[in-house]
Nucleic acid binder design. Structure first.
Lengths: 149, 149
DNA sequence: CTACATATAATGTATGTACATATATTTGCA
DNA sequence: TGCAAATATATGTACATACATTATATGTAG
């Protein structure tokens, strides 16, 4: 749907204002859809993202610091997201023997299994991005990089 | 900065996956910067957006329903955002005389004054979008519309 | 070897998001 | 008229974000 209809605003001050609102609105749209897809599996999007990072490290452990570095949202609270995953038995936490300030976090078999079962959910096929051609997707990335440059 | 460096991921499965991450990451980047700019004025981004809608209606009142329709995030809790604005004296709440289920919400002089003082903050000049040409901004909007189509 | 700075994670608090439920009012219809 | 359904908002709960503070452990300068 056109942005004008989604947020019931007919006039934008400039293509810049419109693009700004569109980036923010579309990101919310994408994330809401994906979050809804993960809901039946009992995990949230941030929890899923942490699991993905842990699988990337597996069988090596990750620390909270490493999670923060890799997360999309650096200011989110990795400690408490790990809390939730630990309570569900999807990760384990163990004080790092070589540096007792740090904590080794590992994904469990149950965590790996959950990622397998949800493999297709995070696929471009169902995200909305499939409406673009590969070239258009690349072009979109370039424009977004330019915003942050 | 390039997305690869921002999230320390060197390889993307496809231009689709990269574009997806880029939309979400860039939206967060934009919103964090804007939120930080509003912080000294004691309001959050959702609160600012509600104030903008109320100024658009002024001197007519708005109802909670109208706020929800116009907000970027339809599932956010307009009631509680209005609570915060009311506590700061930026809006007033009054049971609607013609329909006592509804509540008339109006922006106060203090609210209007705050919007005046923050006028330039929400300007494209400082958002990051100024790195694009007008044509590029329009092209970006078109690509994003296509994702949601 | 102690004292102080730094590193690492956890905790506290305010706000917002997402969704379910509750409360009050109005409307429609038998 | 009376009562069920719909409408409008508020409230409850779980989780996340944003940011400040605290608790431990480690490193380092003198």
């Amino acid at each position: 749907m056109k942005l004008e209809d989604e947020i019931q605003q007919r006039v934008f001050k400039s293509p810049y204002q419109k693009a700004y609102l569109n980036v923010v609105f579309t990101a919310g749209w994408l994330q809401q859809r994906l979050a809804a897809a993960f809901k039946p599996y009992g995990i949230t999007l941030p929890q899923y993202n942490v699991l993905r990072i842990l699988r990337g490290q597996h069988p090596k452990p990750a620390t909270v610091n490493l999670l923060i570095e890799r997360m999309l949202d650096k200011t989110s609270n990795a400690s408490r997201i790990v809390d939730k995953l630990e309570a569900k038995g999807l990760v384990t936490r163990q004080v790092c023997p070589s540096n007792r300030r740090a904590v080794d976090i590992r994904i469990t078999e149950a965590g790996l299994d959950l990622l397998l079962r949800t493999e297709e959910l995070a696929n471009a096929q169902h995200s909305g991005l499939e409406n673009l051609s590969g070239d258009e997707a690349a072009q979109l990335s370039d424009l977004l990089d330019k915003i942050r440059s």
